[in-house]
Structures are given as structure tokens and as C-alpha cells.
Amino acid sequence: MLCRVANSVFWMSRYLERAENAARFIDVTSAIALGYRGLEETLWSSLLHAGGDVETFHKSYPVASRENVTRFLLFDRANPNSVLSCLGSARENARSIRENLTTPMWEAVNRFYLRVRSAAAEADQVLGQPHPFLERIKRSAHQVQGVTLATWSRGEAWQFYSMGSLLERADKTSRILDVKYFILLPDASHIGTAVDVVQWAALLESTSALQMYRRASGRIEPGRVVEFLVLNAKFPRSVRFCVSQADISLRAITGSPAQGFSNRAEQLLGQLSSQLSYAQVSDIIDGGLHEFVDNLQMRLNGIGDAIGETFFRIAPVDRQPAAASQSQSLTKTPAVVSTVAAKTSVP
């Protein structure tokens, strides 16, 4: 397939996943906030920290109130990671490769975007009662995933699509854990209290993991929750699951066998995947959950870059210098659109 198309497929799926996860972030924070009267602002700014959006946020908003942060994460066009911006970018990428998608896929992405856009037009109303809207975001995202599963051939484009969403999801699951860390670890005495259980449950719920966790691990214990969300081999939102599946997709593209590697992306992804496969949760807790998450995010960024280098940026031969105006409209390379939001740095 064309490099440009592969790039757009990859980013379309990342943006869709990112939008869905933004809704999950808000959801978990709202739930945790219920047990934290008086600390509202700390909580909501923790969300900005976990997302790496603090600086962008403070350009436009003085206070990290619930309403400000929610508006910023849902509808702010100045925030490249807001749900509205992500959907705009996802749709833009989809539009540029529409001929590669099935019609139901394109229509699902388009409808998703149109819904968010019309919600943005009545933002005040939505922010007063965000929960139904957050649910709709998740449902629309699932709809896109559903039609994709049901209608798209499992070719190369599919592998780029799943690699994009899996890497994005691994990153975001780790960030959701980080939100919790930010609130709780400063005061270790909370661990194991009733409030604490409620919060861990809320966190599991926000990753749609509560039921699967209960079946796998029974009672809610912080260590086990971390283990489930980071190291579980079967839960589709766990970091390990996402990374190992992304590794499988990458090898399906290159045709490389499971051992060894033929490019940098394979090397980095393979290393991370096997580390997660052989890790123990105690290693993570002992070394510090936040440090672990931090390191994980850096490595995921590195993998994203390596994929770009390997597949999307096949150097064009002698492009002539950029020149004067023309009457036909210009092509805007999706790579430029995408990289803006590619690296959300961790403070």
C-alpha cells in the first residue's frame, strides 16, 4: 500500500482511540471526585498532568475547575487532543484515504464526527450533564471498531489500523493508572480503605475492566488492579495485551518471524513486548508506578517514531523547492497533521 495511506490509516485509528480515551479519562475523574469533596481542583489538574496537557490548558483557562477541564478535553479546538480535535483529525485522515476504507467504516467515522460537532455547538448544555455524552462517545468509538472488524479485509491496511489503536490504547491505559497514582500515593494511609476501593473500582470501570477484573482476580486490591491493567495477557485494554498484539500486527506487515527483527520498529516493539511478558507486578510497584508509566510512555513514543521512519517516510527523490501559489488546492501531507499531537510529553 501507499506510504501516505499507511500513515493516514495509522493516525486515523490513533485519533479515534485517543478520543475514546479522553472520554474515559473524564469519566474516571468524575467518579473519583465523588469521594474527594474539597479537592476538586487537584483532581482535575491531575488529569491534565496525566495527559501532558497542562501548558496548553493554562494558555486559555485560569483555573482547573471541573467545567474548564471538561470543556478543554471535550470541545476545545485549541487543544489538539480534545475529543473534537481528535475526531476532526480522524475524519480528515479518513477522508484522505476514503477509497481504502469500506463505506460503512467511513460513514461511522463521519457520523461520529458529526455527533461530536453538534454536541460542541451546545457545549454548555453537555457540560452540565456530561455522562450521557461520554457514553455516546464510547459507543460511537465501538461502532467504528465494530464495522471495521465486520467489513474490512485483514490486509496490510488493517494491520496498520490495529497497530495504531493498540499503541494508543496501551499509552492511554497507562495514563489512566497515572491519574490514580497522582491522587493516592502521596497519602499511602488511604490504601485499603473503603474510599480507596471505590476509587479503584471507578478506575476499572472507566477502562471497562471491572467485570473482567472481578472474574480474574476477585477482590479489589491495588496491586492486582495494576497487574490486571498492565500485565494481563487476555484483557484487551491491558498494556501487555496491546503491545503484544501490536507486535503481531507489525510482524504480519513485515513478514518477519517472531524471533529477531528486520528494522528498528520491530526491535523496540519486540523488546517491550517480551519485557512485559516476563515482568512481575511487584517489580513495577517497587520501582514506582509513576516512574514505570513514565518510562513506558517514552518507549511507546519511540516505537511510534520508528514505525514512521520505517514505513511512512520513505524519502522522496529530489522534491523541487516549495514554490508560488497555484489555482488548484494544495495537498496537505497527513503526516504534518498527525505529528502535531503525536508526542504528548509527560512532565
Binding site: S96, I97, E99, Q328, T331, K332
Partner: peptide, 14 residues
């Protein structure tokens, strides 16, 4: 195609 900003882009991709 000239790209997604062309007025007939829909037709090209279609």
C-alpha cells in the same frame, strides 16, 4: 488527485 482540499476530491476518492 490534487488532494483533499480540491473541490472535486469527493469524486476522486469515490
Amino acid at each position: 488527485t490534487p488532494g483533499i482540499y480540491n473541490s472535486a476530491y469527493f469524486e476522486h476518492s469515490f
